[in-house]
Design a binder for these strands. Structure first.
Length: 428
RNA sequence: GGACGGUUACCCAAGUGGCCAACGGGGUCUGACUGUAAAUCAGAUAGCAGAAGCUUUCGGAGGUUCGAAUCCUUCACCGUCCA
């Protein structure tokens, strides 16, 4: 870390999308208490949340006091920012469960033990659930102009849509503003950070604090991560890339970063890693001159997997990658297969299942194993040349699957396309 | 409560009695090329069968008709305007 000031560090990473005037001076002059909210809409965060998470860790490393705010209360309402449609409401139980899970994930990055400035996790349900409606409308609501709220992007874009916006979500920014007010008053929190979609909510909170207390609070937002083609970041064929290894295996997680586009990878390094700018510049140089080596992608994938899932998971992901993309898997033993494919979806079948009527490949892929949704899809996939048995293309839909196809009589590796694996285990 | 408009496959959207399993675009999948890229090109994208054919689908239910996504009735939801 070459910059002494977190603001400069963020700026050199292109991570300051917008900031309230004075933030740079504030962060340069003293240790600040700041917070970032996390919405418990699912029981795991995904990589879209990692930028703010890691950014909080950056603040902490620079000696600031960070608060991760789990939205146990606001999560019950739903933030309209960045959402094109009304959300389904979560139950109190779901929300509580999600908050617990998310807290665990936050603890991967934040240090709660350090004496000088330990990170804290608070849950806004602790105060929001106690609010009295009349008091809230009189004390807080009075400070908000509906005219101004209607002008906000997040609201206006929804009003323009057919489905509209409910009063529930419309009120969301009042609650988030109240959070900030509460933290400002009770925890001395003077800065709120978040993704750029939070700008409106943050400034609303700043405004509330100014009106109620006559004091100045600050806000800073990061750009939303976009891929260079403008498509949504963090989605793969299987959906979002989650931090929970049960939802997205470490191998898939590793692969996700490894597959980053040349045009995106440097930005990802800036946003997601703690690498200093010299190291990033070096990797950028390699990407420009020797893109085929994908040095930046490799560094990114290793760093991210290590940070999130640890050394052992990284080793496994690396080993699996070497085996799967290195060539033939026929040379592998059953034990190797078991290890390498521990992440991959699998299905156990019995010898008896193959002993009866002969099972052709298309039926095997769909009905027997459930790898593909329907026999038609299986037939199509085979005809397209997209099906591989033990990494060898299988082009004949009439092929009969027998125990002889299984490595050491126990494993059959199915593959669709380049990267979709499925393991069939044969048991006696 | 009233008037009008809308509800089509993953999304957007065409289709207003048979030529509709439903134009087009996006997305997704597969192949070729490649660096496990990008861009590009090609094919696929309801189920069963895979030659023909059959079954289920156009908000829900019912009806008219030889035949409906298309017409009628009714219900639900959404939007706009009026109260």
């Amino acid at each position: 870390m070459t910059n002494k000031n977190i603001y400069n560090d963020l700026q050199s990473r292109n991570m300051v999308h917008d900031a309230i005037e004075g933030v740079a001076d504030l962060l340069g002059s003293k240790s600040v208490t700041l917070y970032n909210g996390f919405d418990p809409t699912a029981d795991s965060l995904h990589i879209g949340h990692m930028v703010p998470m890691i950014a909080l860790a950056r603040f902490q490393r620079f000696g600031h006091h960070v608060i991760a705010l789990a939205g146990g209360g606001t999560g019950m309402i739903g933030d309209p920012s960045g959402k094109s449609d009304e959300r389904n409401l979560l139950t109190a139980d779901e929300t509580r469960h999600n908050v617990e899970q998310i807290q665990k994930q936050l603890s991967h990055f934040l240090d709660f033990e350090v004496k000088t400035n330990p990170a804290r996790i608070l849950n806004n349900g602790d105060w929001l659930n106690k609010i009295n409606l009349i008091d809230f409308l009189r004390d807080i609501g009075k400070h908000f102009s509906v005219n101004a709220m209607l002008a906000k992007d997040s609201v206006r874009s929804r009003i323009d849509r057919e489905s509209g916006i409910s009063f529930t979500e419309f009120s969301y920014s009042l609650l988030q503003s109240y959070d900030y007010y509460h933290l400002f008053k009770n925890h001395g929190c003077t800065l709120q950070v978040g993704g750029s979609d939070q700008w409106g909510n943050i400034t609303a909170g700043v405004e509330l604090i100014r009106r109620k207390l006559g004091e100045t609070a600050y806000g800073l937002v990061y750009p939303l991560i976009k891929k260079k083609d403008g498509s949504k970041f963090g989605k793969t064929a299987g959906g979002a890339v989650w931090l929970d290894p049960k939802r997205t295996s470490p191998y898939k997680f590793y692969q996700f970063w490894l597959n980053a586009d040349d045009g995106d990878v440097i930005n990802f390094l800036r946003f997601y890693t703690f690498f200093d700018m010299d190291k990033i510049a070096e990797l950028e140089d390699k990407t420009v001159n020797h893109p085929e080596e994908r040095a930046a992608q490799r560094a990114l994938a290793e760093e991210m997997t290590y940070m999130m899932h640890g050394q052992k998971a990284l080793d496994n992901a690396r080993q699996a990658t070497a085996a799967l993309f290195g060539g033939d898997i026929d040379g592998l033993s059953a034990d190797d297969i078991r290890d390498i494919f521990s992440d991959v979806p699998s299905k156990s079948i019995h010898n008896a299942d193959l002993a009866g009527a002969p099972i052709d490949l298309a039926t095997f892929l769909s009905e027997t194993t459930g790898f593909l949704k329907s026999k038609g899809e299986a037939r199509r996939a085979i005809a397209e040349g997209g099906i591989y048995l033990n990494n060898r293309r299988a082009a004949d839909p009439a092929l009969i699957v027998t125990p002889a196809n299984f490595i050491e009589g126990s494993f059959l590796v199915l593959r669709r396309g380049k990267k979709n694996y499925f393991l069939v285990k044969l048991a006696g």
